[in-house]
């Protein structure tokens, strides 16, 4: 499995390298630390949601509602922080509580009532998002608490450009990386992580070896909710404003990024490193287009082609490699032992 996945990751990595070479040839600014930090910062939001999506996909499910969850967590948290006051730590905590509850509701409905995950989460997405817009009346929040501003400006590593302007690795990127490392550890080194793969591989077999399939399902959707809520706060940090309608509609792109990274919609397969590369691939396409001065209108065309070619070629490979049984044919025809009516 490791070797095969490594192959998929190298393959995506290869595409990234090719793209990078093309973009750099046209605009050398692409291959600068400044640009790299910038990409990593602006995609932290997508990247964090992608971690949650990865978990859900590995378990064999799918979630469409996470963008709605992210928005609710973001909106309510900022509202609470403005009304009651608080701190950055409190903001993350409050968002997490909201995200986990909303996610766990999905997990519970899916497990308890055997409703297909895609249907459940489309329904909850409509429910969550509709209620949010009704109660927020669609109003934006511009005046975020001061600590949102201060926190967003923290740099873990600070460098200076030739002109003396500071740039560096944003706290938001660092948060994304920490979450990725923790998630990778959880998936690879804990019983819970292996249970998620087991459930995605074969839920009945998982039950037979003593995995609590119900707990795993509720966990992954709650985890998805948690990641979505953190992403929601990151979005507020990045934009310094909260718009109830800014995230919903992006969910399919995030799922696409995770699938590009090698996760299977059939479940049981996927890694954090692959997911990271998938997110980066789409990020680099977008960033590269800006740098190459390709009009932004072409972005969707490129993304569509990347999805079709990448997923299409791996599906085609699977189809071609689909072999029947292998029978080790006896080298020489043995003599007939019995005489028959031949």
């Amino acid at each position: 499995m490791k070797r095969l996945l490594a192959r998929h990751e190298t393959y995506i990595f290869g595409i990234i390298v090719v793209f990078s070479i093309i973009i750099t040839a046209i605009n050398p600014n692409f291959l600068t630390l400044e640009n790299a930090f910038d990409i990593l910062k602006s995609n932290a939001f997508t990247g964090i949601m992608a971690i949650g999506v990865l978990f859900v996909l590995i378990s064999g499910g799918i979630d469409i509602s996470f963008a709605a969850t992210a928005t609710i967590a973001e909106y309510l948290t900022v509202l609470i922080c403005l009304r009651v006051g608080g701190s950055m730590l409190f903001a993350f905590f409050s968002a997490l509580v909201i995200g986990i509850i909303l996610g766990a509701v999905n997990g519970y409905l899916i497990d308890r009532f055997a409703v297909p995950p895609i249907i459940t989460t489309i329904a909850t997405m409509n429910l969550y998002y509709g209620l949010l817009i009704v109660f927020s009346k669609g109003r934006w929040i511009y005046a975020l608490p001061q600590y949102f501003r201060t926190f967003a400006d923290i740099r873990v590593i600070t460098l200076y450009t030739a002109e003396g302007l500071p740039y560096g690795l944003s706290i938001v990127t660092a948060l994304w990386f920490v979450l990725m490392v923790l998630s990778a550890g959880l998936l690879f080194y804990t019983r819970l992580g292996r249970s998620i793969y087991a459930v995605g591989g074969d839920a009945i077999s998982a039950k037979r070896v003593g995995v609590s399939v119900k707990m795993v399902r509720i966990f992954v959707y709650a985890f998805m909710g948690a990641m979505a809520s953190v992403a929601g706060i990151v979005q507020a940090l990045l934009v310094q404003a909260v718009a109830p309608n800014s995230i919903v509609g992006k969910e399919l792109n995030v799922i696409a990024a995770v699938v590009l990274g090698g996760a299977s919609l059939a479940g049981g397969v996927g890694t954090v490193s692959g997911m990271f590369l998938g997110v980066m691939l789409l990020a680099i396409v977008q960033n590269g287009m800006t740098l190459m001065r390709v009009p932004a209108v072409w972005y969707d065309v490129f993304v569509g082609l990347v999805i079709l070619f990448s997923v299409g070629s791996s599906s085609w490979k699977v189809k071609k490699e689909k072999v029947g049984t292998f029978i080790d044919i006896e080298p020489l025809s043995p003599p007939m032992v019995q005489e028959g009516g031949r």
């Binding site: 696409a256 919609l265 969707d300 699977v318």
Partner: peptide, 14 residues
């Protein structure tokens, strides 16, 4: 033999 959800997500985006 692409999974329908991904094939149509691709054509949708394209």
């Amino acid at each position: 033999e692409m999974p329908p959800i991904l094939a149509t997500l691709g054509t949708m985006t394209l």
